[in-house]
């Protein structure tokens, strides 16, 4: 009798799970997966979007191997990710911990302050920052020269442009990620900290042995999502530099976009996209492995 009930429960569980997943599976298949497969199909063709496709097998992939500009863009994407992901992670976690220690009243004020940049569209945020970054009389340079420093070129310099863009994207996203961290920190039972306090642990110690380990799930999530986002970063770069100056901010998606829509090499662009997808896929998988193994 009990066994039968358990079996029924089990069947019920499976059915419920499929039922819960169904809308998303259908939607993702139709609106993401199918277009993705289609992109792969296109990648086997020479297609300029305007005239019929010509099947050329894997020629696009062969061509890619010797496309220096493409591999340079991949390198730049890695560089961008290496700067952006750790910076976003550390800063949003740092401020989550800081804000969490504030009194409720100040906490909500500070939270709103950090979150507001998130409301502004990527295009507009790019516009505002171009104003701040202006090499002649932008706010930042006015500030620098009043402090006695040399003016910087920011977006106009091949060395500074990428970092300048990272700062803008950090500015937009810190608040949001901070809030996700704060939500997880709130889930940590208070008595853990009280116990640590009684043991005489310092704040840093408490963070390292309680907060940080217990945030593993959230950390994994934020790191993976941020990494994917930074591999597919596009809007702000398009508006602020469109890949310049002298290609110093031409990341992979931007190059793919140029191949597809500026040069109308849809087939080739799709092949690049497939490879970019594989790169991201492998990296995410490796990251997931790393975290689950440790845990």
């Amino acid at each position: 009798m009990k066994r039968m009930k358990k079996n029924r429960r089990k069947r019920n569980e499976v059915l419920t799970a499929y039922g819960f997943l169904l809308p998303n599976l259908v939607g993702l298949t139709v609106f993401v997966f199918f277009p993705m497969i289609y992109a792969f199909y296109v990648s086997l063709h020479d297609w300029n979007a305007l005239s019929p496709k010509v099947f050329i097998g894997f020629d696009n992939y062969v061509e890619m191997a010797s496309d220096k500009r493409w591999w340079a863009s991949v390198g730049r994407t890695f560089l961008f990710t290496l700067i952006y992901v750790p910076a976003l992670y550390c800063l949003s976690l740092f401020f989550a911990v800081i804000l969490n220690n504030l009194k409720q009243k100040y906490q909500s004020i500070a939270r709103t302050m950090f979150l507001l940049p998130f409301a502004i569209t990527s295009v507009i945020s790019a516009v505002i920052w171009m104003f701040l970054y202006d090499p002649r009389n932008g706010v930042l340079n006015q500030l620098l020269s009043s402090l006695g420093f040399d003016k910087l070129e920011f977006l106009g310099s091949t060395n500074q442009a990428l970092v300048s863009i990272v700062v803008v994207i950090l500015w937009i996203n810190i608040g949001y990620n901070m809030i996700i961290f704060m939500a997880s920190i709130k889930e940590i039972p208070k008595d853990y900290y009280e116990a640590a306090k009684i043991d005489g642990a310092s704040a840093w110690r408490a963070f390292r042995s309680i907060t940080f380990p217990l945030l593993r799930g959230t950390s994994t999530f934020i790191l993976i999502v941020t990494m994917i986002a930074s591999f597919t970063v596009f809007d702000q770069i398009m508006v602020m530099t469109s890949g310049g100056p002298a290609s110093s901010t031409e990341v992979s998606v931007l190059y793919i976009y140029k191949q597809a829509f500026e040069f109308l090499n849809m087939g080739y662009a799709s092949a690049l996209a497939v490879i970019l997808f594989l790169i991201i896929f492998i990296l995410s998988l490796a990251q997931l492995r790393l975290y689950t193994k440790k845990g």
Partner: peptide, 19 residues
């Protein structure tokens, strides 16, 4: 010119302007 030629000319300009 085709878009890729336009781009190659633009790249040459960018290289002398900023590179």
């Amino acid at each position: 010119f085709g878009a890729e030629v336009v781009d190659a000319v633009g790249e040459a300009l960018q290289n002398v302007m900023f590179g």
